[in-house]
Design a binder for these strands. Structure first.
Lengths: 179, 179
DNA sequence: CGGCTAGGCTAATCCAATTAGCCAAAGCGT
DNA sequence: ACGCTTTGGCTAATTGGATTAGCCTAGCCG
């Protein structure tokens, strides 16, 4: 039995393949082990168990999203920043529907998750550039809610009608963005 | 061993207690059986298994929500209807955070779920009263996305900042509602 | 080469769902 | 009241996934 060259990082990468393949269903150690070409108990040499693997994957997803948004927003100001944030958010969810559904609902309880969630918040804060105090908080919440709601519904196939979804999203964006 | 007086309906009611108690975590037959004062296998005399119970619970939740929204929207027109819809939606989610998280993500695959989801859509359509064709669809999508996004984030404790959440919601509502 | 550690493996345990098969409680017609 | 049938409990057994215990070898170090 040769070494498989596993590590927490490679396991996270393998788990992401599994997430993409299953469309975000509950992760299972058996599936990850099979993909890694190894028996399930072997995974415990690299991660503490399923909850830890889920936390690592969750943190990775939040981080990916935060990075993507960060790149989209950088160097933009005011309404442009907000638009870029919203479009990049939706694009990410559309590009990885499984990963979007696998995003941790409550990124609390694990320091890694909390740190990643923190980064995401920081990016959202940059997207409401130009607003002050409570106004910034209100705007940030509206953007997060709209982005998440739209992405969740769309990536779950919730928009049945045969009407242009891009157009719907643009309306939503323009309704929210400071005029 | 006396009869426990169970039925699909009572099991759904018991499952809802469990959902409220656990805050929307994965339902388990063991927990429901314990609450019903019965051994797990006995439940199979009333429902086909966990998936069916989940479908029944999901349909019941969608139906409750649809009814609540329906009552809120009835007799209202235009912007008033939209505002009422959004506020009632958020209020329901806030009143039952566990149930909100237990709402089926993809109400498809089971005719009962599909029917309930249909009702919900019909109520949303009434809330965009006054708009025609594509405009109505865009508005409905925006409302659903905003309502779901806000409710999901709020009921998951996603708004950490100490800034009035009611005010944030009002901003979002006014940004969306046809002026 | 001998020894140490890391990383596989098998076997065994635990837990939740589910199935099989038994048996009593109710309802019902006589 | 009596026996039949159906309904709804129960225990025992199976299955599947997570996890733990303990063994054993590959790779590395002196």
């Amino acid at each position: 039995m040769p070494r498989a060259g596993l590590s927490p990082e490679t396991l996270v990468a393998i788990a992401l393949e599994e997430v993409d393949a299953t469309g975000g269903a509950q992760l299972s150690l058996g599936a990850v082990a099979a993909r890694a070409g190894v028996r399930p108990p072997s995974l415990y040499k690299h991660v503490a168990g399923l909850p830890e693997l889920e936390a690592l994957v969750g943190a990775r997803l939040l981080d990916d999203l935060a990075t993507t948004l960060s790149v989209a927003v950088v160097d933009r100001r005011g309404a442009d920043a907000a638009r870029a944030f919203l479009h990049a958010y939706r694009a990410w969810a559309l590009r990885h529907p499984g990963r979007y559904r696998a995003l941790p609902v409550q990124p609390s309880g694990d320091p890694r998750l909390e740190a990643a969630a923190e980064r995401l918040l920081a990016v959202a804060a940059r997207a409401v550039d130009g607003l002050e105090g409570d106004e910034a908080v209100h705007a940030m919440r509206a953007m997060r809610a709209a982005a998440h709601g739209f992405a969740a519904l769309e990536s779950a196939g919730g928009f049945g009608m045969a009407v242009d979804v891009d157009a719907s999203f643009d309306r939503l964006v323009e309704a929210l963005v400071p005029r």
